[in-house]
Design a protein around this nucleic acid. Structure first.
Length: 725
DNA sequence: AGCACGCCGACT
DNA sequence: GTCGGCGTGCTC
């Protein structure tokens, strides 16, 4: 049998079945591997092998009496390993909770304790009053009928010996919990009435239940996408099927979960990064056994086991967090589409700012696109204005017209939100005398001034240094240059004395619950001015905000990354969507030095749709995705030359594997060559469609992996790379 | 990745 | 004389 093992080796290993047993695809097995004993997953049950019999070893044992992965999930995972050119053993391993990777049994019988008939009748009557613990346990079980030992012991503050004592007396007994009841009941509560567009979207989606269709739910913030999801899910539950909902990490909030729980009395499994291994195992098991009717989770939840799949939803489908940026570099959004297609179920992609890939797909099938134009509560969409930074004086990054607008909104009782995509006080510490600036020792990057000027922190490797007052070169006074959230906060405090202000970024919201608490204060109106990073754009609603300011729109306009303008437009529209939710129309100011930039013009005059049309035309003309396919071969090493040498050799090898249409660009050092002490370089593969690219990689990468230079670097391939850095 | 083997430097 | 540095090879 062929077994996938958690190792970077790009192959599977053949084993003889353990004596007297057989294991089909999807089963986990303990196998000898080198000198180790490891968990593997059977990917093919066949007995034939080309491995010489003296090398072939027998598996030790089959772990469970049922497969860990269904045929469907195993096929999806092996397909993904192939597509993303990642070792299949690592892919399968990453799709399992840690306990399963380490060989824990798939089903864990929960051992519960309960009173025996004798115990129920006699325990309290016969146990002496001084046996406080024993009596407490008996009493607890009279009230609770059954409970795990851990719960009983912690509730009664007793040692395990007390429970054992009662067992010896015949008062309590342990038993394994029966298999979960089949066919869990899903109760759906009525939601608010749908508007016309929402109802049409729900109908379009539910009409395709039972077959593959990809729906784009294109609705501005506040247009009620979640309500459409909830109605579609209700239809799925009614058919006895499960729904899988994928969301970006940051928007998986208690409020969202509460909204699902409020609507459905159906078991819900939540999968996110905050779970510990045991919780993750439990949620995974609930999904696999069908106990959970709705599975809601972040990126990796796309690999949830689902015995009765009915619908997949991807909320905020444009969000970059759906693409894993290290190791197994998959896109959960793309895999959700593949999975839905293989399963023959519909998938819903929801966004106010769909990715250009998704828009291009929707153009080909306009019938699958549902637009939700209306804003709930019929508030007017916000008006966008540009503030020309070349013509207007700025105080610490805030232009005079912006200051005036903020004052006006504050005077009128509105709330103001300022967005700047840069944490810290200032991005550069500079010596005006000699031109020196503070650089990270381990990265090709400036150190950011932090904590109102007490620390220097590298945003790329996290290293931290105390701030210096004098230039190490010429001893002149150094000064912070540029703006970060902290400095904007300081400037605003000075400009608008007395206006309560809050800053929301990764630094100010470190502690758990702090973000929720601050958002609560904002929505109660205790905060008048809000400064923050990307965090502000993700999922939260600010109904009282009437003015939104985008302080630095220009970073995205001239980037080397072809996706930068798309990201910028998405950010602007997402931030703008936070304004004017209530009766007041919102106003959005975008500060820029390039007010005539065509993409900004499109965004302002025609909104995201016009921008996307323009950007798609540009992509088509310059042959970038979605009008081409790319992959990036990356390499890094502590030695500066090694990555480039490896990539040059890799490129030279390409001549041996000619495939029409595949072009190689580079190698070149990465945009930030040195990061955390390692030098990085990359080689770009480009092809008109995926199939020649895939054909090329299948031969070429095997040879690349065998290059002697490959041993001197850490290399990886990134298929459909999202960031060219 | 792990893990072992193997051949050259500074020390219990 | 050993402990251990990381180069090289292998994992069915």
């Amino acid at each position: 049998m062929a077994v996938a093992i958690d190792t970077p080796l790009r192959q599977v290993f053949d084993y003889r079945a353990p004596a007297g047993t057989a294991a089909g695809p999807g089963y986990r097995v303990w196998v000898p591997f080198g000198r180790r004993r490891v968990v593997g997953v059977v990917v093919e049950g066949r007995d034939d092998t080309e491995v010489p019999s003296e090398k072939l070893r027998a598996a030790f044992e089959v772990i469970d009496d049922e497969p860990t992965f269904s045929a469907e999930l195993l096929a999806l995972l092996t397909w993904a390993a192939e597509y993303y050119r990642h070792p299949v053993g690592e892919v399968l391993s990453s799709a399992m909770p840690v306990h399963l990777r380490n060989g824990a049994p798939l089903r864990q019988e929960t051992i519960l304790w309960r009173l025996t008939d004798q115990g129920r009748e006699q325990a309290l009557a016969t146990l002496p009053a001084r046996s406080v613990r024993l009596r407490a346990i008996a009493e607890y079980l009279l009230n609770h009928a059954q409970a795990p030992a851990s719960e009983i012991l912690s509730a009664t503050e007793s040692p395990l010996s007390a429970l054992r004592n009662l067992e010896t007396r015949g008062f309590v007994e342990q038993f394994a919990r029966e298999a979960p009841e089949t066919g869990p009941v899903s109760i759906v509560r009525a939601g608010p009435p749908l508007n016309e567009a929402q109802a049409a979207a729900v109908e379009r989606i539910t009409n395709t239940l039972g077959s593959f269709a990809s729906h784009l739910l294109y609705g501005v913030t506040g247009s009620g996408k979640t309500e459409v999801y909830l109605h579609a899910i209700a239809a799925v539950l009614a058919r006895g099927h499960q729904a899988l909902v994928l969301v970006p990490e940051i928007s998986l909030t208690p409020q969202l979960i509460a909204r699902f729980r409020g609507r459905f009395d159906a078991p819900l499994a939540v999968l996110h990064s905050g779970l510990n291994d045991t919780e993750r195992m439990a949620a995974w098991r609930d999904a696999r056994e069908g106990t959970a009717r709705i599975v809601i989770g972040t990126r990796s939840a796309v690999f949830s086991p689902l015995p009765q799949p009915g619908l997949i939803i991807i909320d905020e489908e444009h969000d970059p967090s759906f693409k894993q940026q290290d190791g197994f570099r998959y896109s959960a959004r793309d895999l959700a589409l593949v999975r839905a297609q293989r399963l023959g179920i519909p998938v819903v992609l929801g966004s106010a700012t769909p990715s250009l890939e998704t828009l291009a797909r929707a153009r080909k099938q306009p019938e699958t696109m549902s637009r939700l134009p209306e804003r709930a509560g019929s508030a007017k969409p916000p008006k966008l204005f540009l503030v020309d930074l070349r013509k207007n004086a700025a105080t610490q990054g805030i232009a005079t017209p912006t200051v005036m607008a903020i004052r006006r909104h504050l005077d009128e009782g509105g709330q103001v939100m300022l967005f700047i995509n840069r944490r810290g006080y200032a991005p550069v510490l500079f010596c005006p005398n000699c031109g020196w600036s503070a650089h990270c020792r381990r990265c090709d990057a400036h150190l950011t001034v932090h904590a109102r000027g007490r620390d220097l922190i590298c945003h790329h490797c996290g290293s931290q240094e105390p701030l210096i007052a004098g230039c190490p070169n010429c001893f002149a006074d150094v000064k912070p240059v540029g703006q970060g959230t902290e400095r904007i906060e300081e400037t605003l405090e000075n400009l608008f004395t007395g206006a309560p202000l809050a800053r929301i970024d990764r630094d100010s919201m470190r502690r758990k619950g702090e973000l929720e608490a601050t958002l609560e204060r904002v929505n109660r109106g205790e905060i008048r001015i809000l400064v923050g990073t990307q965090m502000l754009t993700k999922g939260h609603d600010f109904p009282k905000v009437t003015l939104v300011v985008v302080l630095n729109a220009d970073q995205g306009l001239f980037s080397t990354d072809f996706r930068a303008p798309e990201r910028l437009a998405q950010t602007i529209v997402q931030v703008a969507g936070r304004a004017g939710r209530a009766e007041r129309p919102g106003e959005v100011l975008i500060q820029t030095e390039y007010p005539d930039h065509p993409l900004l013009t499109l965004l302002l005059t025609g909104g995201y749709a016009a921008f996307a049309d323009g950007a798609l035309t540009e992509r088509e003309q310059s042959h970038w995705p979605p009008f081409a396919r790319i992959a990036l071969l990356r390499a890094e090493a502590t030695d500066q030359q090694a990555p480039l040498q490896f990539l040059h050799s890799a490129r030279a090898l390409a001549d041996d594997y000619p495939v029409r249409g595949v072009r190689l660009l580079g190698p070149a050092p990465s945009p930030m060559e040195r990061r955390a002490g390692r030098f990085r370089a990359q080689l770009l593969l480009h092809a008109p469609t995926h199939s020649p690219l895939q054909r090329f990689m299948s031969g070429w990468l095997t040879a690349v992996a065998m290059l002697p230079e490959a041993r001197k670097v850490r290399w990886s391939i990134d298929v459909d790379a999202a960031e060219l850095s």
